[in-house]
Design a protein around this nucleic acid. Sequence first.
RNA 1: GUGGGCGUAGCUCAGCUGGUUAGAGCGCCAGGUUGUGGUCCUGGAGGUCGGGGGUUCGAGACCCCUCGUUCACCCCA
Length: 425
Amino acid sequence: MATFQTSPGTRDILPPDAGRWRELVRIFADGVESAGYQCIVPPMFEDLGVFLRLGDATDVVTKEMYDFEDKGGRHIALRPEHTASVCRAYAQHRPTPPWKVWYSGPNFRYERPQAGRFRQFDQVGIEVLGVDDALLDVEVITLGWQFYESVGLKNVSLVVNSLGDVGDRARYVEALAAYFSERADQLSKEALATLEKNPLRVLDSKREQDAEVIANAPTIGQFLSASAAEHFAAVCAGLEALDIPFTVNERLVRGLDYYRRTTFEYVSTALDSAQNAVGGGGRYDGLVEDLGGPATAGIGFALGVDRTLLACDVEKCFEFGSPQIDAFVIDTTGGTHALRLTTLLREAGFSTDRAFDGRSMKAQMKGADRSGALVAVIIGESEAEQSTCTVRNLSSSEQTTIPLVDLQSHLQTIVGPRKPRRQTR
RNA sequence: GUGGGCGUAGCUCAGCUGGUUAGAGCGCCAGGUUGUGGUCCUGGAGGUCGGGGGUUCGAGACCCCUCGUUCACCCCA
């Protein structure tokens, strides 16, 4: 018999972690919906071309894409992120700007897994299309910041930078390439390889050998156009006005080529693994146009669900206890009473579970205890004969026997009021 | 793609320089308590020691291959 397990870089999110996961997404959705963002669910795979716009010098495109040919001969790729899909959707459907959307779902990148990195990983995020205002940048950054606050993370720091407009960025890259080329003998061979493909990313090297050269490299600030500099100053001023702490890091270069002007990253200082960026984003004015739509300003962020929860584990916040139910029905007469009673109680709005397989009283009580139920509703031979049931409060161990007809009102006195579900009879 | 660590019960692990029938704790099941959980006591189930090959009288331990996992590089959330 062959045995199977999850593919490398993927995993099962089991209870109770899956409940915690869902709660995290709920909190995120609450936050951004209160700011006017609406949910979007793009497909998980698209024409490969959609993602090639991320940049042909990016690893995400050149070596990490899950792509394949489908039965119709189309070249398909599993999405490595949401932003390109959202921009493709905008270009395809032309909604009225400003278009503010949020999403939650898995992305796929073929990488070697390690701490905080998976081949299938989930992100939540927002995107806004059609607004150029620096104050929107502030709103977006703030919403991400508030999300981390709302799950209780304390050790998150915000890093911002501006990559300038297209022209600024090109001039800077040119200057950077020249600078690094002059000092090629001092750089690691890995850095030199990166230099060939994308000089900007050399700034990301974590190798000690490269540290000094990088530290003295020209910075983007000197290359910003007047309008880009003004935009960035407005973003910083906005964050200050909201008392959101941040640092400007002119070395912050993000891995996707479409970024323009504002970029930012949320870093968990609680995570000591190499992957401590729990979220990031920036402006991508021009991406919609690249995908065949009208020239459109765009900005957004993506937050890693896995990494955020990892950070929560380290900070011991956003803990998720075992679920609790109202009642657990115990039936030692064969199970038919439990069948009727659980159905009745559920319709009345009480979350209710029971045991199966005709287990012993003791085993059923154990089940009740494990279920986290507040009360056990016991029906044995004598209760069945007299149309009563015994209600045991599992935390105080007090129990009384009452007529079955009084069960619902009695339960309410213990677990509180419950709203009846749809009446089915 | 490159490099290091690790694969023994459902989980966390112990098994000394290779030597009889492979262990513990937790969890699970049952009994102690013929109707009552969470504590306690007793018992039980559960392992082809990741897989394949090799060395040896003998391998869970040693060697090779392979798969998985983990951490780091690369890169990114």
